[in-house]
Amino acid sequence: MKEDKIFHPRANKYLRTEMLPTAFCPGCGCGTVLNGFLQALDELKLDPKELVFVTGIGCSSWIPSPYFKGDTLHTTHGRPIAFATGVKVMKPDMKVIVIAGDGDIAGIGGNHLIHAARRNIDISVFMVNNWNYGMTGGQVSPTTPFGVRTGTTPYGSAEHQLEAAEVVAAAGANYVARWTTYHVFPMVKAMQEALRVKGFSFVEIIAQCPVSYGKMVKMRRGSDFLKLYKEKSVKVEKARQMSDEELEGKIVVGKLKERKRTEFVSTLRQINERFRQELAN
């Protein structure tokens, strides 16, 4: 019975299929991210035994947590990058992947994000940005657009949106990209590039929340958000020629930064090795 329930060959390879269907609401973008990520892993032919998934608290932390077959750490709210740093330093051969939400990574764990990017530690962070705290019913988050009604800002949010991907690019990450769940094929490609890059890689994926966020902005279907992403998104090459006023309310998508800085764990090992040799002499 369980065998015929799933027919995706890649789902059988990477997922605990007995946990499906997912716990996500109908039309949730987290499912699309799960689907795309599965495709990215399958195309890269990665062994699930080499992967460590670290997640925090929130809807998007449910993407890897019960579903993927790799080792999984489901950590406290806002701290997945801190836990992932520890895992990577002790197990440098494992591929450490953080998939968590905007509240987790940009909100509560914002400082961990900036400093992990500055350190340029070899972990891949996928931030699923649904513009609110969806699991608790749609409260305002640092990534909520200006003036939007949410559960805790019934007269419109007075704060401006945090552009997490730009912050990470400025902090020194080796790879930074932003895509939405409308752009599935580039999203999969960006995920693969992020997994391949040595150093801190960050992909921000704008994903729809038709239930908690949608109820306040009167967009109850997943497709409504996808159409909005299609309208509002601007490729990064084009965005560089646009003024700040023109970019207000737009979503800049594409590869924002790629550089080749030295990675943290290998540098740390080199220093340790040098110290050991000096001690032995």
């Binding site: 789902a11 996500f24 109908p26 499912g31 094929f185």
Partner: peptide, 13 residues
């Protein structure tokens, strides 16, 4: 394969 990858529930192949 747009529907296959966009489906949030892995329900299309």
């Amino acid at each position: 394969r747009l529907c296959e990858l966009m489906c949030p529930e892995l329900a299309i192949l």
